[in-house]
Design a protein around this nucleic acid. Structure first.
Lengths: 206, 206
DNA sequence: TGCGCTCCTGTACCGCCAGTACAGTTTTCA
DNA sequence: TGAAAACTGTACTGGCGGTACAGGAGCGCA
């Protein structure tokens, strides 16, 4: 049990790196087993097929993602009582975390599975959808809290603002990779942060 | 010559649909040639290998993308003299165009190649980078024009604002696909439009 | 001590796929 | 009508996903 879990984790680790770098279709099982030093039979002992691997990969990724957001925006709430300040602080912390990744963001598995959606079954596409909905719920709740205390200068929907967080993150990752400029992602997040601050800023004093 | 171009186009058309749906690695040449009714030899007459296909695909995609932006933001400038109004109008027109796609946005090839970057050679990654830089130049020029006439309420960089257009488009496509909500993409673009309007809105009257 | 379970290895095989090689054939257009 | 363009046909290679099993090493427990 102990040993089996460890091997499984090593497969997932190697697969995640490869899938984020080359895409799922271009990631071969043969290459993974060579890398981690097991046989093909060993691989299929842990995963029925490649689709099972994709599912396990995505589940683990989403779980970890949620944990990171919990920590970062939890810290934001610890350091600031005001919901707007807490959120802005969270965005700042997230931007710093992304800026500190030495080789830039490795990529988002949710995005990877979206850009190759027909390569996966219904179950995986549903997992992907649930992840995006969780992001919406998380940030939507924050924006609703903020709106209790601040009146937005434009009548924007809390869920659409929440989606904007995911949009900027996913889009920033793509742009960063296309440009080969790791700094673009944290920068874009800070631009979005400025927008949020502007949106809830009280009208200029008379 | 005429005929050859037509076949080549048919290959590219079929390949683009398949690559956007399943990713490049999961798109097989065998499947493409069956779909368009040629032989494998016929395919390799037009493209030396799969990488040549990818390059041609990306080149055509970027060219077409530029043409669409030229048209839409050109129309914006025709209908409004003011650079801010012209840009806001362009975003509106773009949002409407995206909202009218019956099955949602098919996906962006630049994003596809980013999320599978290691599957492609240096030349293709450079093409991708140039595309992102072209977007930056295009929208950066528009923001600089706007800044000649309007003072932003936050000191934001024109190039970073320009990148935000690409970010929102790429991120919106990913989110739309993940959520299976085609409307998310045009909606996100309109949220961004509100932000831009807010940014250049004169300070609230005293 | 040995039984059974987990966690693999080894071997052999199938059909799909990218790519090569090249000879031959049809189509197109000047 | 003839040369070039645009293919087809055939045969092959090696990698890959996946299947099918048979067997074995190490470990916990009665």
């Amino acid at each position: 049990m102990r040993k089996g879990e460890e091997t499984r984790t090593r497969i997932l680790d190697a697969a995640e790196v490869a899938v984020l770098a080359k895409g799922f279709g271009a990631t071969s099982i043969d290459e993974l087993i060579v890398e981690i030093g097991i046989t093909k039979s060993g691989f299929f002992y842990h995963f029925r097929d490649k689709n099972e691997l994709a599912k396990a990969l995505l589940e683990r990724y989403i779980e970890n993602d949620e944990k990171i957001y919990d920590e970062i925006f939890g810290r934001g709430r610890e350091l600031a009582d005001d919901p707007l300040q807490a959120f802005l602080l969270g965005l700042k912390l997230l931007s710093e975390l992304l800026a500190d990744l030495p080789n830039g963001h490795p990529g988002c598995l949710v995005a990877t599975m979206c850009t190759q959606e027909r390569a996966f079954d219904r179950e995986i596409r549903e997992l992907n959808r649930q992840a995006a909905l969780m992001w919406r719920r998380r940030f939507g709740a924050m924006f609703r809290d903020i709106m209790q205390a601040y009146r937005p200068r434009e009548p924007l929907d809390a869920d659409q603002l929440a989606d904007m967080v995911s949009t900027v993150l996913e889009g920033g990752i793509v742009l960063s990779k296309a440009l080969k400029e790791p700094k673009s992602l944290p920068d874009q997040l800070l631009v979005f942060r400025s927008f949020v601050r502007l949106l809830f800023q009280p009208a200029a004093p008379a």
